[in-house]
Amino acid sequence: MPPAIECDALTKRYADDAPAAVEDLSFTMPRGATWGLLGGNGAGKTTTIAMLLGLLIPSAGRVTVLGHDMATDRFAALARMNFSSPYVSLPHRLSVRENLTVYGHLYNVPRAARRIEELTERFQMGEFIDRPAGSLSAGQKTRVAIAKALINTPDLLLLDEPTASLDPDTGDWVRGLLETYSAETGAAILLASHNMAEVERLCSHVLMLKQGRVVDSDSPAGLLRKYGRDDMEQVFLDIARDRMAPGRAA
C-alpha cells in the first residue's frame, strides 16, 4: 500500500529572483499517521499544503498522494482526500445542509443524504443544519468545515489550523473527533497548527519548517528530549529563535 504522502525535493519559488517559499522538501508520511507541520508565519506551511492539494504547481520536485502523482493524476487523489481551513469559506447564503449536499455531489458520495445525517449527529449540527452557513458562530462554522472535510470519508485529511478561534472546550471536542476518525478509518491527517498542545496530543510526528526548509523532525516526545524542554511551545521558540538542540551544529 503506497504511503499517504511522498514529497521528493519539493521546491516552490513564486518568482525566479525570489527566495524559495519551500526548498528541497522531502518526506514520506505513512498511512494512518497524524503528522504536524509547524513553523512561524512565512515558514512555508500554507505553500506546502497548497502543493499537496494540487492548488499550487511546484517549481521543482514531485508530490505523490495515496500513490497518485499530483502532476499527472491529481483528480484521482483529490477524490480520496479532503481539506479544511478557516481561511476558505463555504457559501454563506446556503444552508449547512445545502453546502454539505453540494460537496456530497462533488465527491460523488454514495447515499449522500444519509452521510449528511450521520455527520449532523456526530458533529451535533441538528439545531443549525438548515440555517445559512453565514449566520453561524465561529465554533459552529468550524464544525461545519470539518464535517465538509469528512463528507467523503477521506483517506487523507489536510487541516490548516483546525481549532483556530475555538474556545478550549470546543477545541478539545474537535480534537477528540479527529482522533476518533483517524482510529476508526485509518485515515492519515496532516495538520498545520500554532496550537502546540494540540500538536502534542494529536501528532505522532512533527515537521518543523523554517524559511521553507525542514529544520527538524521527530515525534513530539523526541523533540522535547532533543531540546531539553517540557513542552512543544518552548521547542517552537528555540527553533524560531535559532537556539539549536544540544549536540546539533548551530
Partner: peptide, 18 residues
C-alpha cells in the same frame, strides 16, 4: 464571480471537480 465573492474557489479546486 459568486464563487470568488463567497471565497469558495479554494474548496472547489481541491475537490475532484474538473
Amino acid at each position: 464571480l459568486e464563487e470568488i465573492w463567497s471565497r469558495n474557489l479554494g474548496h472547489l479546486f481541491v475537490s475532484p471537480l474538473r
